[in-house]
Design a protein around this nucleic acid. Structure first.
Lengths: 136, 136
DNA sequence: TTAAATGCAAACGCTTTGCAATTGA
DNA sequence: TCAATTGCAAAGCGTTTGCATTTAA
């Protein structure tokens, strides 16, 4: 089902603003923040308002089209659900981010569930530390 | 070395406000936020200002007496370094936080190092999800 | 004595909200 | 048509800052 259909199905409308916001999130190669989305959309259509971005993100979360992650830094970051889950290794020295596949985290997920009864949501986890190169 | 000595050593002063803030953090049974500290201190000494709390926290971080952690929820939380490291399971439904001991994370730490050459800093990690009770 | 620390008020950055005007279906 | 959506401006919240006053050493 397309995004437009998902929206309409729930009684919402597809608007140019929503289309641009969706495209921006989808084309982003990283977890993007509200104001990064705003900057990009605003560059093309200056009349678009930041509050529309926030309201749209709220809606897209609700519809399950986008995930919101708190990666620190005092702002939320957003990611297209279609593009799937992945985790990050964030180097504190050089700032680079490395992708980490699920398999490394499954043991942890299992331990938390068995030992603590806690169903961890490890989608988009960020682990901070130092990368190979910076450790040399 | 006492906190007072640590302060003086670096040319800072021990003030009643700083003493109260330190005591509050040290007596807290959880990772406490700036406004929780403020509430407690303010209850005893109403003239104390929130900006003093923030400035003191900044200083205590610098001196390595207190750690600042981003556990989500849009506010930082503080913890006495003396009381040591631990991790958290944060329930997204009820908001409760559970302590998690190091042993659950050591396998992950090992995998990241061996497989990715990444030295993870897992002190004060926060894992989000749903707790036993909220999963019923 | 005097630099460090405080209280106060105002500003900050990110996010939310009320409301009148606009617009998609 | 008309409820959903928007832009705008203002407010909310946690945090920071400038400045005149107070205070620890």
């Amino acid at each position: 089902m397309s995004c437009t259909e998902t929206l309409r199905d729930q009684g919402y409308r597809m608007t140019p603003q929503r289309r641009m916001i969706l495209t921006t999130i989808h084309n982003s190669d990283h977890h993007i923040s509200a104001d990064e989305i705003y900057e990009q959309v605003h560059a093309k259509y200056p009349q678009v308002n930041i509050s529309t971005v926030y309201r749209t993100l709220e809606l897209l979360k609700e519809l399950g089209l986008v995930t919101e992650t708190d990666l620190g830094g005092g702002r939320f970051r957003y990611h297209s659900v279609e593009k799937g889950h992945h985790h990050h290794l964030v180097c504190r020295k050089c700032g680079r981010m490395f992708e980490l596949d699920d398999s490394a985290l499954q043991p942890l997920e299992g331990v938390l569930l068995r030992k603590y009864g806690f169903k961890a949501d490890l989608s988009h986890l960020a682990v901070f530390g130092n990368c190979v190169e910076c450790r040399r």
